[in-house]
Amino acid sequence: MDESPGLSDQYRKASPWPVFVALGLPLSEIGLVFDLFPIAVGGLLLFCGSIVGLLLESEYATTMWKPLIVMSGLLGVFGGLLIVADGTTDVTLLTRAYATFAAAIVMALGVVAGKLFVPKRGIPT
């Protein structure tokens, strides 16, 4: 990567993240409601990833690892709730729970990989 500054450094009234937050949310909703595994996983990753990007950009967070872990944990809890609720509904919620777990695991793996392989000047996955 060259030395040129990123969009949100260069322009104080621009940020690439909001569009993707707004794309990730409906995708994950659709994926979870209609039980479309890949859409759910991808949507959740896009949604959570963009939120992390936003947090970093606005300097609410200094590294991406902590927010990623928190979101991974939240998704884990949500997936767990789906499993608990599964017994009480007519429709099986298991695949939806797995989709949530999958997204959580991908993020957790991302953090592990980042910690291991991105020692300095981090360029995340």
Binding site: M1, S4, P5, G6, L7, S8, D9, P16, G53, L56, E57, T62, T63, M64, R121, G122, I123, P124
Partner: peptide
Amino acid sequence: IEDWRSYSA
């Protein structure tokens, strides 16, 4: 469009 390095505080 984004320079990721500027984030890695």
